[in-house]
Design a protein around this nucleic acid. Structure first.
Lengths: 335, 335
DNA sequence: ATTATTAATGTAAGCATTTACATTTTAGAG
DNA sequence: CTCTAAAATGTAAATGCTTACATTAATAAT
């Protein structure tokens, strides 16, 4: 069943059928109904390839993320997909893992599918040297690139993110106000935003963000495994290092901290305050429930999509939008 | 830059270029190199629309799920996406929510994108009357449909799922062996698998699965909100209903049960055993860590994709594959 | 009624591929 | 050197849509 079949059955030309399909106004109500009836009766669906060929747009946006099973990224995908769909766009999902080579290949793949734009989800896409990101900049010559929760300079690259520096800065300050002074900072080595948050931590602690943190026992990175955190903290504890608060770059790491406290019989928040980051689902699942910094993911995603829509409509849109973080207070802090 | 440009620059015909692109053997090594060099130099990428038009396949599979931010569904998507990609297929994601009308519309949309197949993730897609599923059966006339974690009879519909009936049956039995006798069953009204699990529960409790459960205080459904569960159990507790174990149809509900126990000062697992379902990430985040039934999601997803690949290759494949569940023992049970 | 104007509809070209079939080239046998 | 079969390459049709432009029908003004 193609447009010719429909036109024949309805006794009109294919142009008229096309007009009806695309909601073009210049069609009599009567013909419109006639065509619509045939479409309904015979269950005709326009062929997206042919359509794409003519329009050179598939109304599809590619979404790349490292790992869609990560709750934070999964939420982002959910928001993005919904926003895109309500704007008439579909989303082609691509989970790349963390290796740049693989990502480059997948990006090419999406490009060859002629997506109208590509959204990169997660700060880990823009970490490291400019050289490593060259493939993104190259791609931006062909389609607009939008980055959720990260930023990269470039002509056709639109970044929407949360101010993680001040998110952590604020969290540390609030801990200090509540009487904490020996504050640990734990982050995930996979996430570049962990580095920016580190600066916020160092600044709030009155240290020079430029100084190397090696040898500083209060700062440590992990691969993301909960038990790794628990074990590290236990060792620290046994070695006699004192600390009365922990700030982590994501909620997962904070769960590890809670597990450590439980294992070593340390009361949270009385003896130890803990603040996570992302305000994800698991912040509510833990016991005690986790105080966490909300990085406004929904707003960020929504802004990302509306920016892209602006680009498609050839409007003037900002290259970079920054939202501010907010601390969601639960049970692991004394404020 | 299209195939004509390439053919001109390489001094060959477009057919030869096409052969090179598609790895067809009947091309001299010399011409092949010549063409490849032009493609490389000018950065040519074949147009997927035109390709799709000719082949009538985009090498893309549509994935529909209710809510990709649900950790269980997110994991499924992650597995599916990876498996599809390693088979050379992309995935078009579509989050539909739970309303049938919306789903029907979205299914049409995917169909119009000419996906090679459609995967429905979650038992909630096949709940209810046969009438409500007619739109899926209709769609199966056009493309193969695969269902993850649910089953529907039909000619071109391939179901892969876990035996949830016996999953719950086994869980209840194990609780009984460990000395529990008053066992609650809580399930999610959005999920059809909750009903099948209910049968398993009733059978294990020696009740008739066909009898209505209204009025039975030991069985209850929820909308999925953690606090709703906590409040309900607290009320039950205050009303004097005794129970020494809770089985839930997903891990989320079990978290609510843990929160109730904590709020009412009930010791888990000494006074109350709790078993969740899905063995999801949050089972490890809670305190105490949650014993949960693993429904082999990775194997199910992998089987789903390989079945589809079999269908594409016109091999003989099973219409239905069932895996068996396994209890992952953690801290909320006395075994 | 006649003409001008506008609205509705139709025609045909173009979009970038794939592929069946036709043609040319090459290699090997006689 | 010729002929034949096979390999390499080319030609042109087909895919199903959109849309600029052409044509026809309807309406309004004279």
């Amino acid at each position: 069943m193609n447009i010719y079949d429909v036109s024949r059955k309805a006794g009109v030309s294919i142009a008229t059928v096309s007009r009806v399909i695309n909601g073009n106004s210049n069609v009599t109500e009567k013909t419109k109904e006639k065509v619509l009836k045939v479409i309904e009766d015979y269950g005709y669906t326009p062929n997206a390839f042919a359509r794409g060929l003519g329009l050179n747009s598939m109304k599809t946006v590619g979404i790349m993320c490292a790992d869609s099973s990560d709750p934070f990224l999964a939420s982002a995908i959910y928001y993005l997909e919904g926003d895109l769909r309500s704007n008439g766009y579909d989303s082609l999902l691509c989970c790349t893992g963390y290796e740049v080579d693989v990502r480059e290949k997948y990006l090419d793949l999406l490009l060859s599918k002629r997506t109208d734009a590509i959204i990169l989800v997660g700060s880990n896409f823009v970490e490291g040297s400019k050289e490593k990101n060259q493939y993104i900049i190259d791609a931006s010559q062909r389609v607009p690139i939008a980055i959720v929760n990260g930023a990269l300079d470039g002509n056709n690259i639109y970044s929407t993110l949360c101010d993680d520096y001040n998110g952590v800065y604020g969290a540390v300050n609030k801990l200090k106000e509540s009487g904490c002074s020996k504050i640990l900072y734990l982050y995930n080595s996979k996430s570049y935003s962990g580095i920016k948050k580190l600066s916020g931590y160092l600044a709030a602690m009155g240290m020079d963000p430029k100084e190397p943190t090696e040898g500083n026992d209060y700062v440590r990175f992990f691969n993301g495994d909960i038990n790794e955190v628990k074990d590290y903290l236990t060792t620290l504890h046994n070695n006699g290092l004192e600390f009365d608060a922990i700030v982590t770059a994501d909620d997962n790491l904070a769960i590890g901290a809670i597990k450590y406290a439980k294992a070593c019989n340390i009361k949270v928040p009385e003896q130890l305050s803990i603040i996570g980051y992302n305000n994800s689902l698991i912040a509510e699942c833990s016991d005690p429930e986790l105080t966490s910094v909300d990085n406004k993911l929904e707003a960020v995603c929504s802004n990302c999509v509306s920016t892209l829509m602006g680009v498609f409509a050839e409007q003037e849109v900002p290259l970079k939008t920054v939202f501010s973080a907010e601390i969601i207070i639960r049970e692991t802090t004394r404020f």
